[in-house]
Design a protein around this nucleic acid. Sequence first.
DNA 1: AGCGGAACCTGTCGGC
DNA 2: TGCCGACAGGTTCCGC
Length: 272
Amino acid sequence: MPELPEVETVVRELREEICGDIISSVEIFRSNPIVQGDLDTFQEQLCGRKFMDVKRRAKYLIFDLEPKRYLVAHLRMTGKFIVSEPLLEPTKHNRVWFNLESGRQMIFDDIRCFGTLEVYDDLADSKSLQKLGIEPLSKAMTLGYFIKNLGSSKREIKSVMLDQKIIAGLGNIYVSEILFRSRINPQRSTGSINKKEWSLIIKYTKYILQEAIKNNGTTISDFRRVDDKTGAFQQFLQVYDKKGMPCTECGTPIQRIVQQQRSTFFCPECQR
DNA sequence: AGCGGAACCTGTCGGC
DNA sequence: TGCCGACAGGTTCCGC
């Protein structure tokens, strides 16, 4: 479900809602496979700690706690954080409740249970964070980075853009949208992308992500904000989930193909 | 190195 | 109505 803009939306809203609050107890309704490690340890590591900040790295949420400790979360496909007045009973897909001293509740809800929750004393111990490539909205996102790392690669450009070890934070929706705007066929080999085209990819990656963040992300079906509202960027999507619909530029029907076992949507006329 | 395939789970939708 | 396959904003592991 959530890619960088959706995670960023959730992070910003959580930061407003929970900073300064203290975890009084943790109730786990279904741990497998969400909570990594021993459950008693997980609860013990978190109880009594105060939320100091909520940050994002790629699609990970990082909760800064005091005394110093970190809760690292990944929403995968259907994970959600909801902050609300306390419930009496968990609803169907509630997996973990973080009860707060203010009396409110932060709920981790996840239909498919792919999401992950991990605790670290030192973020450097997280293997998954270590492996991540550059942040697409950072200054590291340069022409030089792509030429140097991918200039001679034969991999398909779609696959490279989804690779979190290279660019960290893009997912299936935004990669289709970025390549459409950049007018690049998703099956092109990365080595065939010229400087001008890389510049377009960089420009539209930043533009689309920023616009999506402004619109609180994209809701196709499952994504929800902390207050259970939907995002609004779906109204600006040009190709994702638009198979057979006319291209907004040339009217050619949008095509759906499968790459890396995932759908790709593109215009065969505009994207060369 | 990098591909395809399967796995982790649950839910929804379309076709017959 | 019911069953079956395809598909879903993600990641990881395994074998070639």
